[in-house]
Design a protein around this nucleic acid. Structure first.
Length: 483
RNA sequence: GGCCCCAUCGUCUAGUGGUUAGGACAUAGCCCUUUCACGGCUGUAACAGGGGUUCAAAUCCCCUUGGGGUCACCA
């Protein structure tokens, strides 16, 4: 196995959306595979019929693709180890599970849910560990055959012998050991004929030749059961890596109720896939240097499981936002113009279509001032429509008795000597300021307010150029009426 | 509660026996500047506690405390 190229998998259950923790798990699997010329498999663990969500698989795939975390094998991409959807593999689990029964590694159990519930209550009352009492392990073959023939509903449980020490090595956590006495005789095949996670995941990982199991830490407690299962089948055990959990600000496992957990939520909030991937990669891993800005291909180069951390990481929206701004600024203006054009469709602006040339010029003016692409039209709405109002605080602070006259003179100067260039807008302003013996600022601030309605933003001359001579004059006129 | 895992600034982390405990986000101040940003500089801020081992411990061991996960015919 050591010499084989690695095969890893991301095995989510189709809950309807991609959890950011799931993205992190998928990403680490992807990075590990790509780094080591391995294969990244996507497998859908849909063995709980009660949780069926229509369209969930497609959503999941779409979210992964949006992030650029693409799989080599999986649904719609057969690599010879399919099917990759567990509900399509039922016969495999059933027949293999029966082999386990024949090998006495598992047994039929006919206990009713009522009996099991009563048992739990009883054990709880007695202060004992809640555990199946192996009631059905003593059934004779004949009795089992009879009850099966009678059509009684059954499950198959794995038989776990007491007194064993189960040990395994985990790349991120090191050596771990459990005592079998604390393990329950886990159900492997459910009453509806579907396998439980434990059975299906062991069988699939083996049949799909998975070499490294990289998954969340929440699976650590059930790993000894999986180890026992591999041993019962006589199969080679893959190498485990249990990743630290993603946490809420209160340090509990990242969940809804405390914020957004779906990748789709962040997408709709305007986060870039590059930022999501970069951020989530850093939650639990570092290359060891100070580099924090990564593109996906750079992560592939730098990644290693050995450098994954052990402790849980709080999902910090601040840092994600910062990374989003960083990735935004790394993009070229034409690239951003494409994103802006798309974002504009979500705006409430009266006109949503603009030329690429215009969008690029707006981007150039705004790019250092936004963290999200939609902030271009939210904070810079004046590029796309005339200001509907003028910031009152700025008005009281910046407007004097002279302002109106100065603006009128500026208009006159523009009409005479402005060719629409930045220099000419600037020069005209200097001329008026000099003539009136006032500072440029006496003109600049009112001008900014007239053009944009707000007190901050790109350089005024840049705004004026983008707006154009005619529109700029018109806006100053409109503004003057309010003075 | 049983079992398992974890423990460096508020957050993400570097650190693998000898460092003024470093960086980033956030935060405060200053500079740049026509505004807002960007950028630059500076500051506040951490080894959970207690025992060992060692000339020397954030680094190794033990205990305590704290946090988390998990104990389903869910994954």
């Amino acid at each position: 196995m050591i010499n084989e190229t690695p095969r890893v998998r991301f095995a989510p259950s189709p809950t309807g959306y991609l959890h950011v923790g799931g993205l992190r798990t998928a990403l680490y699997n992807y990075l590990f595979a790509k780094k080591n010329n391995g294969t990244f498999v996507l497998r859908i663990e849909d063995t709980d019929r009660n949780r069926y969500v229509p369209g969930a698989v497609e959503n999941l795939i779409a979210a992964l693709e949006w992030c650029g975390v693409t799989y080599d094998e999986g649904p719609h991409k057969d690599g010879g180890y399919g099917p990759y959807i567990q509900s399509e593999r039922l016969e495999i689990y059933q027949s293999l599970c029966k082999e386990l029964v024949e090998k006495k590694k598992a047994y039929y159990c006919f206990c009713t849910p009522e009996r099991l519930d009563a048992l739990k209550v009883e054990q709880e009352k007695a202060g004992q560990q809640k555990k199946y009492d192996k009631h059905c392990i003593h059934l004779s073959d004949a009795e089992v055959a009879d009850r099966l023939a009678a059509g009684e509903r059954y499950v198959i449980r794995m038989s776990i012998l007491d007194g064993q020490s189960i040990e395994f090595d985990d790349i991120v956590r090191g050596h771990i050991s459990f005592q079998s006495d604390t393990l329950d005789d886990q159900v492997l095949l459910k009453g509806d004929g579907y396998p439980t996670y434990h059975l299906a995941n062991v069988i699939d990982d083996h049949q799909m030749k998975i070499t490294h199991v990289i998954r969340g830490e929440e699976w650590l407690p059930s790993t000894p059961k999986h180890v026992l299962l591999y041993q019962a089948f006589g199969w080679e055990i893959p190498i485990f890596s249990h990743l630290p959990l993603l946490l809420n600000p209160d340090r509990s496992k990242l969940s809804k109720r405390q914020g957004d957990v779906a990748v789709e939520d962040y997408k709709s909030k305007g986060f870039l896939p590059e930022a999501m991937v970069n951020f989530v990669a850093l939650l639990g891993w570092t290359a060891g240097d100070d580099k924090e800005f990564y593109q996906l291909n750079e992560l592939v180069q730098a990644f290693s499981l050995e450098r994954v951390n052990k402790s849980g990481a709080v999902f910090d929206l601040n840092k994600l936002t910062w990374l989003n701004a960083e990735h935004l600024r790394k993009k070229s203006s034409p690239e951003l113009a494409v994103l802006l054009a798309k974002s504009l469709q979500d705006s409430d602006l009266p006109v949503k279509e603009f030329t690429t040339e215009f969008l690029v010029s707006v981007i150039d003016a705004m790019r250092e001032r936004v963290e999200f692409i939609h902030e271009v039209w939210k904070n810079g709405s004046y590029f796309f429509q005339r200001p509907a109002a003028y910031d009152a605080a700025v008005k009281t602070k910046r407007i004097t008795e002279k302002s109106k006259k100065l603006m009128e003179e500026y208009i006159a100067e523009l009409q005479q000597n402005c060719d629409g260039s930045k220099e000419s807008f600037e020069h005209a302003l200097h001329v008026v300021a000099e003539k009136n013996e006032v500072k440029n600022a006496e003109l600049i601030h009112p001008l900014r307010l007239a053009l944009s309605g707000v007190g901050g933003g790109p350089g005024v001359y840049d705004i004026a150029v983008i707006l154009g001579k005619e529109e700029s004059i018109e806006r100053i006129n409109i503004f003057n009426e309010t003075l």
